[in-house]
Design a protein around this nucleic acid. Sequence first.
DNA 1: CATGAATGAGGATTCATTCAT
DNA 2: CATGAATGAATCCTCATTCAT
Lengths: 192, 192, 192, 192
Amino acid sequence: MRANKTPTEQVRRAQIVAAAIEVIARDGVAQASFKVIAEQAGLSSTGLISYHFAGKQDLIDEVGREILARFTEFVLDRTDGVEEPTAVLRGFIAANVDFLRTHRNHASTLVRIKNDLATVDLARSDQAALAAVLRQGQNSGVLRAFDPHLMAVFVLSIRDGLIRQLDLDPELDLDAATREFTTLVDLATRRT
Amino acid sequence: MRANKTPTEQVRRAQIVAAAIEVIARDGVAQASFKVIAEQAGLSSTGLISYHFAGKQDLIDEVGREILARFTEFVLDRTDGVEEPTAVLRGFIAANVDFLRTHRNHASTLVRIKNDLATVDLARSDQAALAAVLRQGQNSGVLRAFDPHLMAVFVLSIRDGLIRQLDLDPELDLDAATREFTTLVDLATRRT
Amino acid sequence: MRANKTPTEQVRRAQIVAAAIEVIARDGVAQASFKVIAEQAGLSSTGLISYHFAGKQDLIDEVGREILARFTEFVLDRTDGVEEPTAVLRGFIAANVDFLRTHRNHASTLVRIKNDLATVDLARSDQAALAAVLRQGQNSGVLRAFDPHLMAVFVLSIRDGLIRQLDLDPELDLDAATREFTTLVDLATRRT
Amino acid sequence: MRANKTPTEQVRRAQIVAAAIEVIARDGVAQASFKVIAEQAGLSSTGLISYHFAGKQDLIDEVGREILARFTEFVLDRTDGVEEPTAVLRGFIAANVDFLRTHRNHASTLVRIKNDLATVDLARSDQAALAAVLRQGQNSGVLRAFDPHLMAVFVLSIRDGLIRQLDLDPELDLDAATREFTTLVDLATRRT
DNA sequence: CATGAATGAGGATTCATTCAT
DNA sequence: CATGAATGAATCCTCATTCAT
């Protein structure tokens, strides 16, 4: 509709997105009706959601965009300045697991809506970024030869699987998981 | 209600389950209404689904049970008789990828409903079986020390991630993916 | 359909009617679906009910007929041979309350389906019989002048109200209720 | 949800309740589907009923509450200011019968839904109020000794029976019925 | 912008009934 | 006669969306 969003609009959208993340993490996508999201957000009407979003798909997409933005920002913060490729890789994994720890709802919601995202490109950008890191490691000679994109898919699949496993088993030892995860990627990628 | 199902009942349930698998693989869980499933199955009314299943959850669970049964059977067929642990592992991965190839709808539906299954135990039995294989490899000395259950979670996460990736990118080279997947697991698990 | 019922047919109908009485007394008319009644009767199919009854209304009517027949028979047994009008009246009330005691399900079901009976005449025959007794009492001079039919309606209303009250309050003292009921009718009808 | 209802909400609820009363009085509880009630109320869809009521039971309960409120108000208007217990009693009966006359649908609906009311307490409050009047009459010495609560049950049962009889026989002479009813209660309760 | 009432399509499920075996 | 599978209309209810205020 409108190209530019007013500040109020942005605040409202953010508020609704935050509520949606909570609800989806707690109850699942199927139960995340506008009614429940509005209640979670403390809104008095579901109409307000429809007013600020073009439709349910738009809201879901915004939720995905928001989570991926925070996720990316979080990971970049943790790996910024690191040069050595294997260190970047280890930092990447550690940052990913740390994000689950500190933003469990975001993480849980992300894997739950991945199938429903209209803009698949968002998810792909993740893969592309990691693939670039891997390729760089190969070029610098510390990583062995493999398909960087496929390896990125594998690594991110493990991360997502970890999030799902954490939903099933909240008692999971994340420190141990991080170590095993790091070791696995190290062994699987480094030049022997 | 009844402990034993009549043959007619079994056939109808199987027919409905098959239709549900098609629909979920094609349109997603959210779009898999009784109406669409009934049409896919060529049934005269949605009432027939309710007649044969206690509810939607019951149908979803049966779908999960059916897919996992076929999946397990398929993988066991391919790995039966193999003794050497690393060979079992390679066979396991190859069989898993082959299943995606030959039963893409089953695979796609499985990852889509995993979150919705009431009986999570089904999914867990997968993990337990693979963990047992890994533990055996450790005991026989060919695999290095790691947490077998966590490693099973990782391996199966990659498999599931591959299924999702295949939904996003149907042109994915599965042969190459199998090779990379096998190499990754080999490097990550074998004793150096 | 058929004019004459075979013995088997009669037995089946009676069995279904008995089950319906149990279900309606326990769960109410609204919950008395063919499915529940069939389960209560130990039948394997609701089709059997449809086979033996022209429709749900037919079943309800048969239930009403059956209960009223037993009720009438029960009351007549207890008042047979009594001549003196006030004694008949007292016996009538005592018999009615005794019926509640010994056939609570029948009684409860009767008041629950009264609104739904197609053949209202059944309920009316009750009123007519009691009105006749009252008229006889007036003719013999022991009862005062009043509209016999209205008085019959009143007395039977109290009886039905007692059944409903018993459903609400199972601890109700029926002996005390019988005494109060008898006294009320005595005072209200006898010639001063 | 909300503690206070908006005026619009109150109006709509009242409109739906009024329609439900009409439908139940005309067709019975079993036929009173949301569809029929919505048509009676001139609503565009049954969804509007669900929007304003938590469920069918909520609507039924509101119907009961509404009728009893009007009934109580009506009777209190007619007996207010009367002191002498027997006069109160006569006034109570007259007011009850007058209510049937002027609010036949309300009365008819009330007896039809009495079994279905979730909040039985509503019906009981009626009994308690009448029992209090009777007890007062006993204390002042004009009424004989009897169980006030049981007598209240009896009197209200007659009233309800009268409503049912009026449904069966619309030609019933209500004036005569009032006289007989009043006489009965007078004879049954006064000290001799 | 926000509200909440209204809309109507679509959801799963229950129902009495029919019918082939 | 009995069975149980099938039918399809009808049930209540939820949903995202619209709109007047």
